[in-house]
Amino acid sequence: MTEKVEAAQTEFEKAWGDARYTRAELPPVDVNRILQERYVSEEPVVLTRAMLWDMEVRKAGNPGAFIPYVVKEGTASAWVPGQAGGELGDEFVRQSQQRLWLEPEQYGLVLEEVWLDHERQVVTFLGRARFSDAQGDPLTADTGQPLFHVQHGVAGTDESPTNTWRIVLLTDEPDERIVQVFDGMAESPWLPGFVENYVRDVLGIGLSRRDV
C-alpha cells in the first residue's frame, strides 16, 4: 500500500467516524450462495475472491459498463491527473453523471478520486467538489446532493468470497431519508447488478433470475 492510498483510507475513516455525516454499510454479500439459490446460469459458475477483486478493479475504471443503472450512458471517464491517456494504475480520478440518491430520475455530475489497495482488496472512492479534466479544464460536481465517499471491497475466503460496500455522505447532520434508500438496497434478494454484469459480460456466462 502506498502512502497516498493509506492517506485516502484514513480520510474515509475520519469521515466515517464524524457524527454529522450520513453513513450506511450493506451486509456482506455471499455471492456464490446467492448465485446458487437465486439464479439460473447457462453453465456452472463459482466466483473466487480473485475474480471478485478483478471485477472491482474493472468497475472502478469503467463504471458505465458495470453500473449502467446508476451512471448515465456515455458520461463516464477516468484518467490519471495530468495525463490525457495511458494506463490508469492504482491512483486515478473519474467523472460520471449519476442518479441522485433521493431523486433517482435526476442525474448529477459526480467527481471521485479512486484508490486501489490490492493487498486489502479495497477500493476507496473520495467525492470531490472540483478538479480538472484530462485536458486541464475545470470540472465542478453537482450540488443537488452532498458529496460522498464509498468503499467497495472483497472479504471472506477464496472459495467463499463476499462483496462489501459502505458509504458516507458529507451532510450537515444525519439524513434518515438517505439511510432508508440504503436500507432498501440491503433488503434486495439479488446480487448487486455489477456482479451480474461481470458474470454476463466478462465471464460470458448467461445468467437469469429465478422466480421468487
Results as ranks from 00 to 15, higher is better:
R94A: 05
R210M: 11
W165T: 12
R99I: 06
S41D: 10
A7N: 10
A8L: 03
V123H: 01
K59N: 14
W101M: 14
D211L: 11
V110D: 03
T75C: 08
S96N: 09
F12Y: 10
L26H: 06
V5H: 00
Y69E: 15
E196N: 07
P192A: 02
V212I: 12
P161Q: 07
R94F: 09
L207F: 05
W16Q: 06
L207Q: 09
V199Q: 03
L47T: 02
E112G: 04
D142S: 12
G82C: 03
G153R: 00
G108M: 01
E176A: 12
G184N: 10
M55A: 06
E73V: 10
E87Q: 13
P28H: 04
E105W: 08
W79E: 08
E6D: 12
E73A: 15
Q9E: 14
A7P: 06
G86Y: 01
V29R: 10
V168D: 05
L100R: 13
Q121M: 12
S208I: 05
R23T: 11
D90I: 06
R128Y: 04
S41N: 11
N163H: 14
L169M: 15
F12N: 07
D183M: 11
L52H: 07
A78L: 01
L203E: 12
G108A: 07
E6F: 03
G85Y: 05
P68I: 03
G86E: 05
Q9Y: 00
F182Y: 15
R38K: 14
R120F: 00
S208A: 13
E56S: 09
I34W: 03
D137H: 13
L170T: 03
P161L: 00
R177N: 13
M1G: 15
T164W: 00
I34N: 07
G86Q: 02
Y198E: 05
T2Q: 09
D183S: 12
Q83F: 04
V46L: 13
D30H: 13
E42A: 14
D201R: 14
V202R: 10
D137P: 04
R20S: 13
Q145C: 05
V199T: 05
F92V: 07
F131L: 03
A50F: 05
E56Q: 15
E37T: 10
D201C: 09
G144Q: 04
Q97P: 08
L47A: 05
Q98V: 13
E56Y: 02
H149E: 09
W190D: 15
L126S: 06
V212H: 14
V181H: 06
N163W: 09
A129C: 05
L191K: 00
E6N: 09
I205C: 12
V31K: 04
R120G: 02
W53Y: 06
E11V: 08
F125V: 12
R166L: 01
R177Q: 14
T75D: 08
A134R: 14
V199W: 01
P44T: 12
T162E: 15
R210P: 11
D211M: 11
K14M: 07
A155Q: 09
T2Y: 04
G64K: 00
V154S: 07
W79N: 07
P192C: 01
A8D: 08
R120H: 09
Q145W: 00
E56T: 06
V31L: 03
M51L: 12
H152V: 13
I178F: 01
G85H: 11
D201I: 04
L102Y: 04
P63N: 02
P138T: 05
